[in-house]
Simulated assay, not measured.
Amino acid sequence: MEAPGAPASQGTAAPAAEGEEAAALAKEGEGLYAQHCASCHQANGQGLPGVFPPLAGNPNLKDKAYHIKVVLEGLQNQPITVNGQTYQGVMPSFAQLSDREIAAILTYERTAWGNDFGPVTEAEVKAAR
């Protein structure tokens, strides 16, 4: 029983706030994705067959640490397989972007086009640097 005058339980407030932050981050990431990623991975996340892998439906995005690492470090002639197709992973590093910008882009990628892999936080990107 709560003491008189005590604030009401906030059991659902924190998850709601986290959801709102993730939604705001994804919205920010949509614009950053268009600016930095869509030229290769396409606006619809489908990539270019045999050249640039799709991000839509890409099971590799489930591995948050790997996803962050690829964006921070890029890929240089490292083969990756997505949905049975192998791509010769050549991607520049985007380490010049801020932790927030990378978190926003990755949150967008992990939640757009039917992906349901959850958000990435600035703290997770910072820790990976």
Rank of each mutant, 00 (worst) to 15 (best):
E2K: 10
E2G: 09
P4M: 02
A6V: 09
P7Q: 11
A8V: 11
A8S: 11
Q10N: 11
G11M: 13
G11N: 14
A13M: 12
A13R: 07
A13Y: 00
A14N: 04
G19K: 03
G19L: 01
E20F: 00
A24M: 03
L25Q: 10
E28N: 09
E28L: 10
G29R: 01
G31L: 07
A34E: 09
Q35A: 07
A38C: 13
S39E: 11
S39V: 12
H41C: 08
A43N: 08
G47Y: 02
G50A: 08
V51N: 00
P53R: 06
P54C: 10
L55V: 15
L55N: 12
N60D: 12
L61S: 13
L61V: 09
D63Y: 11
K64I: 01
A65V: 00
Y66Q: 04
H67D: 12
I68F: 04
K69N: 03
L72A: 08
E73M: 02
G74C: 02
L75S: 00
N77M: 03
N77G: 08
N83V: 12
N83I: 14
G84H: 07
G84Q: 06
G89D: 03
V90T: 15
P92F: 15
P92Y: 13
S93G: 05
F94S: 04
F94K: 07
F94E: 04
S98N: 02
S98F: 05
D99T: 00
D99G: 00
R100C: 03
A103Y: 14
A104W: 03
I105L: 12
I105T: 14
L106K: 14
T111I: 15
A112Y: 05
D116A: 15
D116Q: 14
F117N: 04
F117Q: 00
G118Q: 06
G118K: 11
P119F: 09
T121R: 07
E122W: 01
A123P: 03
A123Y: 07
A123I: 06
E124G: 12
V125D: 05
V125W: 08
K126A: 15
A127R: 15
